Simulated scan of single mutants.
Amino acid sequence: MIRMLDGMPEGVLGVETLDRLTAEDYTGTLLPALDTAVKESGKIRIVLVFRAKFEGMEPGAAWQDLKMGVRDWNAWERIALVTDHAWMKDGFRLFAWAMPGEARAFGLAEQDDAVTWAAGKR
């Protein structure tokens, strides 16, 4: 399950995972928010927060994630991953070159820095 984070700067989406990601999380929550961002500004700046209780993704969620990444390819401007999961940060950094826009990983204690960076203020 995911939830949208409140208090984000204008033009930044904040998303936090609460346990296991499902296809419905993408189609019912995240994709509509991304569509709105693209319609409003033509850009996607996102902060993705994965805390210790993240339990993975269902196969349908992985497919939605892949489709989301190629959708509006040129709109993706900044992707900030916030987590203390070393495996997730390592994988993110390894494939950052293949992601649209800029991508950067942060630790949970650096969440405020991630939001500032995603907003383009650094």
Rank of each mutant, 00 (worst) to 15 (best):
Gly7His: 05
Phe106Arg: 04
Ala103Val: 02
Leu18Ser: 07
Met8Pro: 03
Thr116Val: 15
Glu10Cys: 06
Thr27Asp: 08
Glu55Phe: 04
Ala119Gln: 03
Val49Asn: 07
Ala61Asp: 08
Leu48Gln: 13
Glu40Lys: 15
Leu18Asn: 01
Arg71His: 13
Glu110Asn: 07
Leu81Trp: 05
Gly101Leu: 07
Lys121Met: 10
Val12Met: 03
Val82Pro: 01
Val47Ile: 13
Ala96Leu: 04
Arg3Leu: 11
Ile46Met: 11
Trp97Ala: 13
Thr83Lys: 05
Lys67Tyr: 10
Asp6Tyr: 00
Asp90Tyr: 08
Met8Ile: 03
Ile44Gln: 01
Phe106Ala: 05
Glu58Asp: 03
Leu66Pro: 00
Gly7Ala: 03
Ala96Phe: 04
Phe95Ile: 14
Ile2Ala: 11
Leu48Ile: 06
Gly56Ser: 09
Gly7Thr: 02
Phe95Trp: 13
Lys39Asn: 14
Gly60Gln: 00
Gly28Thr: 01
Ala98Phe: 12
Phe50Met: 08
Ala75Glu: 07
Asp19Ser: 13
Ala96Arg: 14
Phe54Thr: 12
Lys53Pro: 04
Ser41Glu: 11
Trp76Asn: 00
Val82Tyr: 00
Ala109Val: 09
Arg93Pro: 02
Trp97Ser: 14
Ile44Tyr: 08
Met8Gly: 01
Gln111Arg: 15
Arg20Met: 10
Arg104Phe: 00
Ala80Arg: 09
Met88Asn: 06
Lys53Ser: 12
Gln111Thr: 14
Leu18Phe: 01
Trp76Ser: 07
Gly11Lys: 00
Arg45Lys: 14
Ile46Cys: 09
Ala114Val: 08
Val15Asp: 00
Ile46Leu: 15
Ala23Glu: 14
Leu18Ile: 08
Ala86Lys: 14
Gly69Lys: 11
Leu48Gly: 01
Gly14Gln: 04
Glu10Ser: 14
Phe50His: 12
Trp73Arg: 15
Gly11Asp: 01
Phe54Met: 08
Trp117Tyr: 06
Trp87Asp: 13
Arg104Thr: 09
Asp113Ile: 08
Gly91Trp: 09
Gly7Met: 01
Trp73Pro: 04
Leu5Ala: 06
Arg93Phe: 05
Leu108Tyr: 04
Leu81Asp: 11
Leu34Phe: 12
Pro100Gly: 15
Val70Trp: 12
Ala86Asn: 12
Trp76Arg: 06
Asp112Trp: 02
Arg93Tyr: 05
Leu13Val: 07
Trp87Ala: 13
Ala96Gln: 08
Gly14Ile: 04
Arg71Met: 12
Ala61Ser: 04
Ala98Tyr: 08
Glu110Gln: 15
Met8Phe: 00
Val15Ser: 01
Ala37Leu: 15
